[in-house]
Amino acid sequence: MSKTALITGITGQDGYYLSRLLLKHGYRVVGLIPPQRQSNLAKLGDLAGQVEVYSVALTDSAALLEAVEQLRPDEIYNLAAPSFVPASWSDPLGTLDLVTGTATRLLSAVRQVGLATRFYQASSSEMFGQVDQSPQDENTPFRPMNPYAAAKVHAHWTMVHHRQRYGLFACSGILYNHESPLRPPNFVTRKVALAVASIKLGLSDRLEMGNLQAKRDWGYAGDHVEAMWRMLQAKTPEDYVIGTGQLHSVEQLAAAAFACVDLNWAEYVNVDPKLIRTDEHFHLVANPAKAKQNLNWQPQVSFEALIQEMVLKDLERLKSGAVTPAAP
């Protein structure tokens, strides 16, 4: 008999790659999607017809309890969160309710129904914030620097409390930046990939960037969702830092992307001080040793291969008219 997995945030990047992985493993995959977001199901593309949809407001405790009672999932993956971190400043309370509220309501529902459901909470390296040690591991203190990160910390500890007090099988994956061709253009990796493709095709002539020395631990979304799944297959519920363990600067990102189309990045990139973030992190890099040892997990896609996949996909999209050229 196949397992049933519920996913919040199923129409996001991670939702797509996680759904693809679970379907491959023979799961029944059900997306919990708010009524006003039903149209987003199209983002799942070829997977849209293979997953089920359960319409429910994630802010409605009674409705979520009913969903869990009806569907009786073997696993829940709570990925629901704002997709863009800086946007959390404009709606900190909404961010808190979506991130922490959804986690609390789902965990409470599992406990009330009395299921042995295994629960995954999507945490974030943003929770580490202003770090004084690099790389970071599962024992690094949290020092959140924005409302999104603060909400993620609250949700993380809510999950831990349910595990400790009620014995739920609940895990947190503290994921570092993970990218793919499905990233929206407001993320720097996709912004660069789309701009490079546009410049290569003669549709634009420059790329405006912020701090070129800002660094990130960038991995591939497909690799990171594999870690999520492995956490819920383990014998004991534990929390894991998931990342590549390698830092790359925005300058290296630009250089790698332009190299994919045989162009010199320095001829096309301009620095605009207005694009520099005041809460930029410089030393967020993972130590994924625990995941490697306990889950036998490690990244499979290199930074260069990831960027190449993103650039080539945007070249394909621009040629077919599926996306519009990047603005400068």
Results as ranks from 00 to 15, higher is better:
Leu201Ala: 13
Gly219Arg: 09
Phe142Trp: 15
Leu182Ile: 00
Gly31Ala: 08
Ser204Ile: 07
Ala255Lys: 13
Met310Lys: 05
Gly94His: 05
Ala87His: 13
Ala259Trp: 04
Gln233Asp: 03
Phe119Lys: 05
Ser123Tyr: 11
Leu168Ile: 03
Ser61Pro: 00
Ser61Glu: 15
Pro86Val: 08
Pro328Leu: 02
Gly9His: 07
Gly45Ile: 04
Thr140Val: 08
Arg20Gly: 00
Ala327Asn: 12
Glu179Ala: 15
His25Arg: 15
Leu22Thr: 11
Asp239Ala: 12
Val285Ile: 13
Arg118Trp: 10
Ala305Phe: 00
Met1Leu: 08
Glu179Gly: 05
Ser90Pro: 01
Glu238Asn: 12
Gly129Trp: 02
Ala80Gly: 08
Leu65Thr: 13
Ala291His: 06
Glu267Ala: 10
Lys235Ala: 15
Arg317Trp: 07
Ala289His: 09
Leu47His: 09
Val225Met: 08
Tyr54Met: 01
Asp239Ile: 07
Ala266Pro: 01
Asp132Leu: 10
Asp46Thr: 06
Gly101His: 01
Val196Ser: 07
Gly245Pro: 11
Asp137Gln: 10
Thr100Asp: 03
Lys313His: 13
Val225Ser: 14
Pro82Thr: 01
Gln36Glu: 10
Leu194Trp: 06
His283Asp: 07
Glu226Ile: 10
Gln36Pro: 01
His178Arg: 06
Ala305Glu: 15
Ser83Ile: 11
Trp89Ala: 02
Asp205Gly: 10
Ala170Gly: 14
Ser172Met: 10
Leu201Ile: 06
Arg216Asp: 04
Asp60Pro: 11
Lys290Trp: 00
Asn146Ala: 03
Leu107His: 12
Leu284His: 02
His156Met: 02
Tyr54Thr: 02
Glu179Lys: 07
Val192Met: 05
Arg190His: 09
Gln293Asp: 12
Asp239Glu: 12
Ser39Cys: 01
Val225Glu: 12
Leu65Val: 04
Ala259Gly: 15
Ala155Met: 05
Pro147Val: 06
Phe303Leu: 04
Ser125Ala: 14
Gly94Val: 06
Leu318Pro: 13
Lys43Phe: 15
Arg20Ser: 11
Leu115Lys: 00
Arg317Phe: 08
Arg37Thr: 03
Cys171Pro: 00
Gly26Trp: 08
